[in-house]
């Protein structure tokens, strides 16, 4: 399928150049052959040899070149990219590339931002990067306080309410305000970015069997249930709290458009089990569209030609589709 005339391209960041970011960008371009216009921001010297590259000065040139070469908006880095060994001298440039992509999306030159994985420790050590991760930095650039992470694979979109915290801290971190805001942002994004107004939102319980009437935990009764009742009163189509173990098989998934999970693995286990290679990470609540593959820098295989671009291609595709929905 070809892009409609005048459709703006997706901006893809290089991510940590010592990881698999540059090679999966090249492989994604080889597989897509221009059918999904995107341009890469990074140092052309970091790309694997053998892939045709076309340096561009403006994202608007993407469409004319993407069928024959990977369009690259050059961003020079001070050091080469030794596979698996991030260079502290490159840290500042990695961060600049992210900011540049966001700016292009905010000004309308790019339709969306797709980010390749970064290595937080390398950025912290090399450039004093103070954000816990990509997402928090993007929220800062976008000028918003609260964003929501969504994981998506064919057949399932799921949003974890709490993310990178110990399991022991999950019940304490789960507040009515956090749950309410997360579901509201999710509902708004389903309408704006996924063309699903009035989305059916299935919310998992925290406890086994969703607490079974309070026999195995009271959060469903004391916290989750009342928040969901309030959201229903606002007109949202909410199911739950549901028993998490029976809400993710194919038959159950047919009954909702997006799921909300209470903690990281409650969301990640179904996504990875359904589709290990094709999962996409989406940030909801930003003033621009942002997706990323749901894997890391993979230092152990970087530069060896083993990296799989499947998740990146899915992320590019989702960015394109979300941008179209937002523009419609």
């Amino acid at each position: 399928m070809t892009a409609p005339d005048g459709e703006r391209p997706v901006a893809l960041t290089c991510g940590e150049p010592s990881g698999i970011g540059p090679e999966i960008a090249a492989h994604a371009w080889e597989r897509l052959e221009g059918r999904l216009p995107f341009f890469w921001i990074g140092d052309p010297a970091h790309l694997p040899r053998g892939v045709p590259v076309r340096e561009i000065a403006d994202p608007g040139e993407t469409a004319s070149h993407c069928a024959t070469a990977l369009p690259v908006l050059p961003h020079p880095f001070p050091a080469p990219n030794r596979p698996g060994r991030p260079d502290p001298d490159n840290a500042a440039a990695v961060i600049e590339v992210i900011a540049r992509a966001v700016k292009l999306a905010m000004t309308g030159a790019a339709s969306a931002v797709c980010t390749a994985p970064i290595h937080k420790k390398a950025l912290k050590d090399g450039a004093g990067f103070a954000y816990p991760g990509h997402t928090e930095y993007l929220a800062h650039l976008g000028g918003v306080d609260r964003v929501v992470m969504m994981l998506a694979c064919p057949g399932l979109k799921v949003v974890p309410v709490t993310i990178h915290i110990p399991l022991a801290e999950v019940p304490g971190a789960l507040t009515p305000a956090l749950l309410r805001d997360t579901i509201r942002i999710t509902a708004a994004a389903m309408a704006r970015d996924f063309a699903t107004p009035g989305a059916r939102i299935a919310v998992a319980g925290l406890n086994p069997h969703a607490g079974e009437g309070g026999a195995m935990g009271r959060e469903e009764i004391d916290l989750i249930g009342p928040v969901l009742d309030g959201l229903r009163a606002e007109g949202l189509a909410i199911l739950g709290p549901l028993s998490a173990d029976t809400m993710f098989h194919a038959g159950a998934r047919a009954r909702y458009d997006v799921a909300v999970a209470m903690y990281h693995d409650q969301a990640l286990i179904p996504v990875k089990t359904i589709d290990f290679a094709g999962g996409v990470n989406v940030t909801l609540g930003l003033p621009f569209v942002r997706t990323s593959p749901d894997h890391g820098t993979a230092f152990d295989i970087a530069g060896r030609g083993l990296a799989d671009p499947t998740s990146l291609i899915a992320a590019l595709r989702m960015a394109r589709d979300m941008a179209r929905a937002r523009a419609a």
Binding site: L167, P208, H209, A244, D245, T246, F248, H249, A250, G251, D265, Q266, I269, P270, T273, I274
Partner: peptide, 16 residues
């Protein structure tokens, strides 16, 4: 597995 839903989510998804 460490807790109920950790295993049950995967098992019920893979072969209800």
């Amino acid at each position: 597995t460490m807790y109920h839903d950790q295993g049950q989510i995967a098992i019920k998804l893979l072969g209800f």
